[in-house]
Design a protein around this nucleic acid. Structure first.
Lengths: 211, 211
DNA sequence: TTTATAATCTAATCTGGATTTAATTAATTT
DNA sequence: AAATTAATTAAATCCAGATTAGATTATAAA
């Protein structure tokens, strides 16, 4: 029997990136399957060969973005750096990831709400179940991501490196500021991702270390 | 000739509030004119008596939200408080506005992208022109809002109250954290708006005043 | 009361996509 | 070559929702 796929054509990841781009520019509602397809020189219909439907496509975009974010943050948390160093690195990598690929960053911020309205996603079939599961997993991962910041702050307080703050709220504030970068960042602006990251680190670490 | 409107029924503001609520829950795309109408016991068709179309309705929601925000922040900026006091008040009122009406706050954060895609908004007629103008005005007001934070920070640096930071980036960070509150805030959570505001103030002012 | 207009409604329209279907065109393996 | 599956496509289908049309009802002013 013959097997292996035809090694030509567009890759799943190309589509995800294209989708993220269009999504950033137009938002979910305004984004057409046709728009996405056009970016990779395909027909809307072709996308259905790679993804079950529009909802799954969006989900995949966001899943990938989050996974990448986790992948770069996780090792830092597990390292044996002290809390300040960890947080510094975490902010850096996160912000640089966002500015390095604003589309995905913006999608992560903006399109999450689209996830909630289960809308279509597979009427009847087991698709719907799969969708819900993956979405829930996404939210768990998202919590996990946030928790890494929270715990790092908490441990910094425990060791006396940081002053007393509410770790949860402080973490959310940091993430808010960081995510927001994806909203306003302009590659042609005054600062690059690295510089912005430095300023955020400065802002928050200075606050945490003040006595 | 007879004149004055019938003083019965639903008010424009009721609709705007309803729209903001639905918008927060479902996002623009998933929000149906019917959904909005239902909240105020009207038919989708009836909404067209109050708003030109869906785009204009959304625009109105966001315009109102921003105007309210400006209205409460502006007098603080113009007062003769010092920079720290101003910033403290500004954050407080802003965060409390957000937590007091999460729907509008969230709409302001999330639905802005929908504005950009001119999509429909009035095909041909002068409606389109009006839409563009109002949208541009909205963005100007938005800049103005941000500028108030930026300038307050800048003047605090000038007077030596604050340490040297980049006012633009610092302002964006603050706004990011504040806007983000609208995303995660839960009325049944551990803290109320007032308390959250205090923590944010603490975070940022501590940073600004550290030496 | 009569009249003009506001506020609504019900019943069409209309249309833009999303999704399906039924081919067609590669690659890959044996 | 033959067989099998991947990748695409053009052409149809389908339908939810926005918008429009044509009444109907309520109110205020004269």
């Amino acid at each position: 029997m013959a097997r292996k796929p035809a090694e030509q054509s567009v890759h799943r990841d190309d589509i995800l990136q294209a989708a993220a781009d269009v999504l950033q520019e137009q938002g979910y509602e305004a984004t057409t399957m046709k728009d996405i397809a056009a970016r990779v020189n395909l027909t809307a219909a072709s996308l259905y060969h790679h993804f079950k439907n529009k909802d799954f496509l969006l989900l995949a975009v966001i899943e990938r973005g989050l996974q990448e974010a986790i992948k770069i943050i996780e090792p830092i948390v597990q390292s044996d750096l002290n809390a300040s160093e960890k947080l510094t690195d975490m902010v850096h990598t996160h912000v640089e990831a966002i500015t390095g690929n604003p589309s995905v960053g913006a999608a992560l911020v903006f399109e999450i709400k689209s996830l909630v309205s289960v809308t279509t996603a597979g009427r009847g079939s087991g698709d719907e179940l799969e969708y819900i599961e993956r979405r829930d997993k996404f939210f768990k991962d998202r919590d996990y991501f946030e928790r890494m910041f929270r715990e790092t702050i908490k441990s910094g307080i425990a060791t006396g490196e940081f002053r007393q703050v509410d770790p949860a709220i402080f973490a959310k504030s940091m993430l808010g500021a960081q995510n927001w970068v994806g909203v306003w960042y302009n590659p042609n602006g005054r600062f690059n991702g690295q510089e912005i990251a430095e300023m955020l680190v400065d802002t928050f670490l200075t606050s945490l270390k003040a006595r």
